[in-house]
């Protein structure tokens, strides 16, 4: 079930990037798109009845910590992408005085 919700999020993000013409909205769409994959990693790492992997004597079932670490890296990448995209949007706004893609394509 949660996978299906996640896939909906994935498609929604992709749809926003492709359909929207406002560049800021596209950046938001990109973020939703990336987050859906992050959530997918976290869902996959969850073990039924597992606890956070802190070593002790009485808990033997742990959730997999590796995807969390991977996603930390991916989040950093996503932040870098977002900030670069926003910087480019500022430059475009300065040059054209517009951030609507369908208007920009005509110029």
């Amino acid at each position: 079930m949660i996978f299906i919700l996640n896939m909906i999020l994935f498609l929604l993000g992709l749809f926003i990037i492709v359909r929207e013409s406002n560049l800021i909205k596209k950046v938001i769409g990109l973020n939703i798109f990336q987050s859906s994959v992050f959530i997918f990693y976290l869902i996959a790492s969850k073990v039924e009845g597992g606890v956070p992997p802190i070593l002790n004597d009485y808990q033997l079932v742990y959730s997999n910590p590796l995807p969390h670490v991977l996603i930390l890296t991916a989040i950093v990448v996503s932040i870098a992408t977002t900030s670069l995209a926003l910087a480019l949007v500022i430059k475009i706004k300065q040059k054209y005085n517009s951030i609507e893609e369908n208007e920009l394509d005509k110029i």
Binding site: L23, T81, L84, A85, L88, V89, K91, I92, Y96, L104
Partner: peptide, 9 residues
Amino acid sequence: SLAAIQYLF
């Protein structure tokens, strides 16, 4: 810049 951001997406 426009080409760059489109490539970024």
